Amino acid sequence: MTDRLKALADAGVSIWLDDLSRERLETGNLAELVETRSVVGVTTNPSIFAAALADGERYDEEVGALAEAGAGVDLAVFELTTTDVRNACDLLRPVYDATGGLDGRVSIEVSPDLAFDTAATLESARALWAEVDRPNLLVKIPATTEGGPAITDALGEGISVNVTLIFGLGRYREVMEAYVAGLEKADAAGLDLSGIQSVASFFVSRVDTEIDKRLEAIGSDEALALRGKAGVANARLAYRAFEEFFTGERWQALAAKGAHRQRPLWASTGVKNPDYRDTMYVADLVVPETVNTMPEKTLEAFADHGEVLGDQVRPFYDDAQAHMDALAAVGIDYDDVISTLEQEGVDKFVASWKELLETVSGQLEQSGRKAQQ
């Protein structure tokens, strides 16, 4: 176990890997990362599965069986992805047990093309929860306006949820509200609140990508000096909102019944701009009671040269607010940035989903042709 990653974990940051494949599972790679890299969870998305299925021959046998059974592409994707996630849940079950259910979690996403359909999102969440059938699953539901009620209803049925695609502070507050409302529904239904977990996936690097582009279009020295700092500032203010929200009588009533606070999860933490430190979205967001889900490249970069310098969030609330004020002063419209990122986020996931469907469709056809030869 590397000292740098252990120090990060000791600082209260749960390290999750933002990747999964059958190869990682069957070669022991994921188990090794758990053993040597302090990895205590896994997140997935359609892009990750598309890459895994396109590159690996380890799916051929299951694809062949599905093709022989006449499975359509939607069912095939459902079966292939839930198999990987179930096996990852089993691998991480000792972590789940050791942490009282806090970690050892594996996330799988509802179909992204359902992002604006509340009823269909809830139906998809129920199907995934039932099929994987592991207590350490998290079902990913996007933080769209329509996703909010589905989040509440899923939690109300005891389904643990990873709320994804959060970019803005206003939306984040809505997500926390949806979480608490879900716990209240679960409590009213007589469910054990201690068994329900949730994280709120707050995206970081994409905020810098969008705001940097706008700052460069403005082009003044004052604007250019503000580049590369908005993602971290925005996330720090999200943590302030987290601390403010999970207090008071309403929350304390749920906490007394075993409810857990919905931890912020820093997502999109791979650095997009090569001019920036490759560990900045990890090192600059160290604070207790958070998750940082990283692509393996970022994980290994931090293991090699990342620094843990204590709490990098709570002492910097004023600095973060000052930075956001400075962005507004040079003409950056925060609400428009967030609206753009939310729409792009859904669009990208839908495109990845279509890519995944096309990949599996091609494999089913190829397997079918082989069977006929």
Score class of each variant (00 low, 15 high):
residue 187 D to T: 05
residue 187 D to H: 14
residue 188 A to W: 10
residue 188 A to H: 08
residue 189 A to Y: 06
residue 190 G to P: 10
residue 191 L to C: 09
residue 191 L to M: 10
residue 191 L to G: 08
residue 192 D to P: 08
residue 192 D to M: 09
residue 193 L to C: 07
residue 195 G to R: 14
residue 195 G to S: 14
residue 195 G to D: 13
residue 196 I to L: 06
residue 197 Q to W: 14
residue 197 Q to P: 02
residue 198 S to L: 01
residue 199 V to E: 08
residue 201 S to Q: 04
residue 201 S to F: 06
residue 202 F to G: 02
residue 203 F to V: 11
residue 204 V to Q: 04
residue 204 V to P: 04
residue 204 V to H: 03
residue 205 S to G: 05
residue 206 R to F: 03
residue 206 R to P: 04
residue 208 D to C: 02
residue 210 E to S: 13
residue 211 I to C: 01
residue 211 I to S: 00
residue 212 D to W: 02
residue 213 K to G: 12
residue 214 R to Y: 03
residue 214 R to T: 12
residue 215 L to D: 09
residue 215 L to G: 11
residue 216 E to N: 15
residue 217 A to N: 10
residue 218 I to H: 07
residue 218 I to F: 09
residue 218 I to V: 15
residue 219 G to S: 06
residue 219 G to N: 05
residue 220 S to W: 12
residue 221 D to F: 11
residue 221 D to V: 09
residue 221 D to Q: 13
residue 221 D to K: 10
residue 222 E to S: 14
residue 224 L to I: 14
residue 225 A to V: 11
residue 225 A to E: 13
residue 225 A to F: 08
residue 226 L to T: 12
residue 227 R to T: 13
residue 227 R to M: 12
residue 228 G to T: 09
residue 228 G to V: 06
residue 228 G to W: 07
residue 229 K to V: 09
residue 231 G to R: 05
residue 231 G to N: 03
residue 232 V to M: 00
residue 232 V to K: 00
residue 232 V to F: 01
residue 233 A to N: 02
residue 233 A to F: 00
residue 233 A to D: 07
residue 234 N to A: 11
residue 234 N to P: 06
residue 235 A to E: 06
residue 235 A to F: 11
residue 236 R to T: 09
residue 237 L to C: 11
residue 237 L to Y: 09
residue 238 A to E: 05
residue 238 A to M: 14
residue 239 Y to V: 10
residue 240 R to H: 13
residue 240 R to T: 01
residue 241 A to H: 01
residue 244 E to N: 14
residue 244 E to D: 15
residue 244 E to V: 00
residue 245 F to T: 00
residue 246 F to W: 15
residue 247 T to P: 08
residue 247 T to N: 12
residue 248 G to S: 07
residue 249 E to L: 12
residue 250 R to P: 06
residue 250 R to T: 05
residue 250 R to F: 07
residue 251 W to R: 02
residue 252 Q to S: 15
residue 253 A to V: 08
residue 254 L to R: 04
residue 256 A to P: 07
residue 256 A to F: 05
residue 257 K to Y: 00
residue 257 K to D: 11
